[in-house]
Design a protein around this nucleic acid. Sequence first.
DNA 1: TCAGGTACTCACCAAGACGTCAGTACGGGA
DNA 2: TCCCGTACTGACGTCTTGGTGAGTACCTGA
Lengths: 112, 112
Amino acid sequence: MARNRPYTCGLDAAIDVVGGKWKATVLWTLEDQGPLRFGELRRAIPAVTEKMLIQQLRELEADGLVHREIYHQVPPKVEYSLTDFGRTLEVALRPLGDWGHANMARIEATHP
Amino acid sequence: MARNRPYTCGLDAAIDVVGGKWKATVLWTLEDQGPLRFGELRRAIPAVTEKMLIQQLRELEADGLVHREIYHQVPPKVEYSLTDFGRTLEVALRPLGDWGHANMARIEATHP
DNA sequence: TCAGGTACTCACCAAGACGTCAGTACGGGA
DNA sequence: TCCCGTACTGACGTCTTGGTGAGTACCTGA
């Protein structure tokens, strides 16, 4: 994302955190379907590539929104889940998600 | 912005609309300070360049979020204001803005 | 022995978002 | 007469974002 600091308002900061192409989808999927393994997450979001998923997950983890639990097994198993902090974001994001859902037809129509 | 259609959830659509680098700031400024002339808006957001401001305003106008009122005067006068639709977005955006405001220190600290 | 599944990493590339800078038409004021 | 301020437009370049496709280590089961 195009970092824009220092932030002029809270919105800037929030969109900075959630503005990656797949971050909203990842957050929404993790909230909806609970802890998921990497492969499960990838299958839950078919359009994302492995590289992008990993990149977005790393950034969400760095921001403290997502927890990464490694199980030392073979084959490897890594589980991703929302942190408490991530859940507060999810709550703050919900009205925006509802707005987008309610106006999706309009948005798709007006976008080139 | 990186359009991501068809949208998988409302959040995608909403972030598509509001994800431009300056759009949140513009929306917030217009909501906060009422109808503003182009020059006033530019002075209210010092870091933005003219070209970017115009571009973002055009997109917000195309999305029906901002109204552009032209006064046929010399020197020219153009006033921008939120539409009713834009105001519904602003309402949906507020929890996210509050979240960003409340966690700004944390966000600034964890971002490289 | 060898393919398969796990969760990655890395090099390279294309598209587009963003920025810089110059230029436009118009009339008012010095 | 010339410069100023208004609200733009357009060419050009750069830098970030995201995508492609390859390769990695490990153990399991056939």
